[in-house]
Design a protein around this nucleic acid. Structure first.
Lengths: 144, 144
DNA sequence: CTAGCTGCAAAGCGTTTGCACGATG
DNA sequence: CATCGTGCAAACGCTTTGCAGCTAG
């Protein structure tokens, strides 16, 4: 079977049904290189299945989020970005000047999680962080 | 004069006018113990000045944000939280279980900023971070 | 067969914008 | 007195919800 079979099993196991819509939403997230907004997903699914509704996308995203199969991140642009929770954790730095999104290693955030856990007993969700700021290029420009 | 006088000077200096509305928005942020949403501020100002409009609040917040006198943080609840940028930087950990907001020291984030600056030349906005997760108490409960 | 999912339409929410009037410097 | 800020109302974009019909297990 396809590489989605384990996800299907996970859904069924928690009392959910598998539908073509869910399958496609799931696949588009699974195979996306980065994060997708709800309407990104909507557009992609609609290409192959024109009658999906955006509300179905949101409802499915909620289910997947609750099952911790995907993560939701607010990137500051008003809408939320969703991403498949894969093996390698990574984070993003977003330049407020040129809106470039750069991926960074989990290593940068590792210490933070450990510190919070040790000192406060707080288990931080550091699966997917969005860090805003100015990239080197934009710093140079604003200095002029 | 009041403790706001330097802010007034800063506003004037950058070509802005001082109005009673701005003064009150500013004061409510200045004297708030934590972060306030736009409608929090709206409510507070309205108590003393009933004819303010929410759009004025937003417009003033934009001005103050551009001047870096306040910070804007998205705490995941759909709306944005604003806070006076004081001398001591601090961050927040937010429990997704009980919604408790806990303040944490800047020390936890220091290394992150240094690393990004050193490796990528990226100047991260780490004035005010919101970190989600589960507090010790809620972890215990969900374990049952 | 029955719980759960869907599409549709409409509403909800925080936020932004156009406009004419009013206040500030 | 020119410019900028305001209140009002309406629009915006993302997200959620109520509902009747449909579908997966």
């Amino acid at each position: 079977m396809s590489c989605e079979s384990e996800t299907v099993t996970a859904l069924r196991g928690s009392g959910h049904k598998m539908t073509p819509q869910r399958m496609m939403i799931l696949t588009s997230l699974r195979h996306a290189s980065g994060h997708l907004t709800a309407s990104d997903i909507y557009e992609r699914v609609k290409a192959a299945y024109p009658y999906v509704d955006i509300s179905t996308v949101y409802r499915t995203l909620t289910v997947l989020k609750d099952m911790r199969l995907i993560s939701e991140t607010h990137m500051g642009s008003g809408d939320a970005a969703f991403e498949w929770v894969g093996a390698e954790r990574h984070h993003h730095v977003i330049c407020k000047g040129c809106n470039t999104v750069q991926e960074i290693d989990h290593r940068y955030l590792e210490k933070l999680g450990e510190g919070l856990s040790r000192d406060l007993g707080f288990r931080a969700d550091i699966d997917h962080f969005a860090i805003f700021g100015l990239c080197a290029e934009c710093q140079r420009q604003s200095a002029n």
